Computed example of a mutant assay.
Amino acid sequence: MAPETAPEAAPQPEAGPGPGAGPGAEPVPAPRRRPRVARTIGLLAVAAVLGLVGGTAVGYRVQADREPVALPPLNQPGLAYPAKPLPEERKPKPLPAAEDLRTAAEGDLRKLLVAKPAGAKANPYQGDGWLPVQRFAAEFTSPGGSLDHQLDLGIRRIAQSAWATGEHRTVEIRLVQYRAGDFLGAREYIASQQDYMPRKDYAGGEGTSLKGSADGRLYVFPVERKPGYLDFHHARAYFYRGDIAVEIFISDTKKISVKDIGSLAERQLERL
């Protein structure tokens, strides 16, 4: 058998003078052609797609020709139901209103506010009763964005109580109730407020945990001193119970202790 020979190269065009060359100019070699790599890659891609489609079709055909196999039994036993409903004397009785937290929260929210101490005077900066949502949002840095955020959380209504004691101490308590939904708006609001507290322009620390609550915190702010003014002391409490967020503010020209804000927060938590 004769040995294989390499295929003949394709004939190349003769070299000629380049554009604008005069008589006697040296001939310019013709440019080489690039191999048709793109066409080869395209053929390989088409072949891969056809192979994938063909393999999938064969797999479906093989599975369709097989006999069905029964699934293994479930581990959960069958649910049993009583043949007859329970008699009236054995049915569980509904909780009384005093023990049903949901019933209490659906009533007059203002009745859940902690009672004012004896001898308390009216707060010159805040009043009692219902606080409109628009006014609540207006107290934030960005009222429009805060109102949109509160509506997204499902804010429902706000009850507040405020009073003044001593020479310059003022107290304000707010119960911010949210609608039931996929998440707890009260928890989201309290968490967002607590995120601000460690900043230097706020409490400057993590605060103290509130006894009896899951995530409640107490914050005593650093004293503010300005020439020509009395010292300003400030403390806050943030916690929630169910769909109600609670925020408490105490301001005074004298020092406010953690015990002062903590005892008031504990009494409000017991009311909920």
Rank of each mutant, 00 (worst) to 15 (best):
P7A: 11
P11D: 06
P11N: 04
Q12C: 06
P13A: 14
E14I: 11
A21Q: 14
P23I: 11
P29L: 03
R33Q: 13
V53K: 00
G54R: 02
G55E: 00
G55D: 03
T56R: 03
A57Y: 01
V62A: 01
V69M: 04
L71Y: 07
G78H: 07
P85Y: 04
L86W: 10
E89K: 11
R90S: 10
P92Y: 05
P92D: 05
K93N: 06
A98Y: 09
G107V: 07
L113D: 02
A120C: 04
K121L: 14
K121Q: 15
L131G: 01
A138H: 06
A138N: 10
S142H: 09
L147C: 03
H149L: 12
L153H: 01
G154S: 02
I155W: 02
T165W: 01
G166W: 02
E167C: 03
L175V: 03
G181E: 05
S192R: 14
Q193A: 12
Q193F: 06
R199S: 15
G204E: 04
G207Y: 02
L210A: 00
D215I: 08
G216P: 02
F221D: 07
K226S: 13
K226V: 14
G228N: 05
G228K: 05
Y229N: 11
H233L: 05
Y240Q: 15
G242K: 12
S251R: 13
K254M: 07
L264T: 09
E266L: 08
E266T: 12
E270D: 12
L272Q: 10
